[in-house]
C-alpha cells in the first residue's frame, strides 16, 4: 500500500492542479495577511473559507483522480497487490497531497508573518487540523461515490450534489426543522444534526473560537455543557474523525467486491 501511496502522491504533486491549489492558498494567505497583519483575524477569515472550499476541492479532486486513474488502477489490479491497498493507497495519495498543499500554502505566509511568535498558533493549528480532516473526509466520500458509479458524468454530478447538500441544503433543512418544531426542546436534536454533517462540525469548531459569547447566551444546559467546556472541541474533532474513518472503511469494503 505504501508503494501505491508513494506513486499516487508523486503523480499528484507533479500535476498542474496541485500547484494551482497550492498557489491559491499561498496567495490567499499572503493577501489576507498583507491586508490585515492581525494573525488571529486572518485565521478567522480563513476558517470561513476553508469549511466551504476544502470540502469542494477534496470532492472534485477525489472524483477526478479516481476516474482519471481508472486504467492505471486496472494495470495495478493485475499486479500481485491487494485490492484494498490499491484504493486506500490512491485515496491517501490524493488526500495527503491536498493536505500538503493546504499546510504549505497557508503555513508559509503565516510563518513569514511571525506565526511562531504569535498567540494565534493554537488557532492556526486548529485551522490546519480541521482543514486536513475535512480533506480526508470529503476525498473519501468522493472515492465512495466514484466506486459506486461507473459513469463518470454521473459520479461527478453526485459528488458535486453531495457537496452542495452538505454545504448549503443540509443547513437549510436543519433550520426549517427548527422552525417547524419550535415548541419542542431542540438542543439535543441540534447537536446530533450537527454531528451528522462534517461541514457543520468544522463550523462548530470555529464558533467555539469566535462566537462563544453568543453561544453562551442560550439557556439550554446541554448547550452550556457542550460549548462551555472542552467537551465541544473534543467531541467535534472526534466526530470529524469518524467522518474520515467510516468512508475509508467503506472504500476498503467496497473495493473488495467490485468488478473491473
Amino acid at each position: 500500500m505504501l508503494k501505491i501511496l508513494k506513486y499516487s502522491f508523486f503523480d499528484l504533486i507533479r500535476s498542474r492542479w496541485s500547484y494551482v491549489y497550492l498557489l491559491f492558498y499561498l496567495l490567499l494567505g499572503f493577501v489576507l495577511l498583507f491586508l490585515n497583519e492581525d494573525l488571529s483575524k486572518a485565521v478567522i477569515t480563513l476558517m470561513n473559507v476553508i469549511i466551504i472550499l476544502v470540502p469542494l476541492i477534496g470532492t472534485i479532486f477525489g472524483v477526478m483522480y479516481y476516474y482519471d486513474s481508472k486504467e492505471f488502477t486496472e494495470l495495478l489490479l493485475a499486479q500481485p497487490v491487494k485490492r484494498s491497498s490499491i484504493f486506500i493507497g490512491q485515496y491517501l495519495g490524493v488526500s495527503l497531497s491536498l493536505v500538503m498543499s493546504l499546510v504549505i500554502g497557508l503555513g508559509l505566509p503565516f510563518v513569514f508573518y511571525g506565526l511562531f511568535q504569535s498567540s494565534a498558533i493554537f488557532d492556526f493549528t486548529l485551522l490546519l487540523v480541521t482543514g486536513a480532516l475535512l480533506t480526508l473526509a470529503f476525498t473519501a466520500i468522493a472515492f465512495n461515490i466514484a466506486l459506486y458509479n461507473e459513469n463518470k458524468i454521473k459520479g461527478f454530478s453526485y459528488a458535486i450534489l453531495m457537496w452542495l447538500f452538505m454545504a448549503v441544503i443540509y443547513d437549510g433543512l436543519f433550520l426549517m426543522f427548527l422552525v417547524i418544531f419550535d415548541t419542542y426542546p431542540l438542543d439535543k436534536f441540534s447537536l446530533i444534526a450537527t454531528m451528522l454533517n462534517p461541514i457543520d462540525l468544522s463550523r462548530i469548531l470555529i464558533l467555539l473560537k469566535l462566537d462563544i459569547a453568543a453561544l453562551l447566551g442560550y439557556t439550554g444546559a446541554i448547550f452550556k455543557e457542550f460549548f462551555g467546556t472542552n467537551t465541544g472541541l473534543f467531541s467535534a474533532l472526534g466526530a470529524l474523525m469518524i467522518w474520515v474513518v467510516l468512508p475509508v472503511f467503506n472504500i476498503y469494503r467496497k473495493s473488495k467486491k467490485k468488478d473491473f
Binding site: Y7, D11, R14, S15, S69, F72, E74, L75, A78, Q79
Partner: peptide
C-alpha cells in the same frame, strides 16, 4: 498474480 504477466486491452497510464 505474481505468476501472471498481463497485457490489458486499453493501455492508459498515470498521466504525469
Amino acid at each position: 498474480r505474481s505468476d501472471i504477466d498481463y497485457l490489458p486491452q486499453i493501455a492508459n497510464f498515470p498521466n504525469n
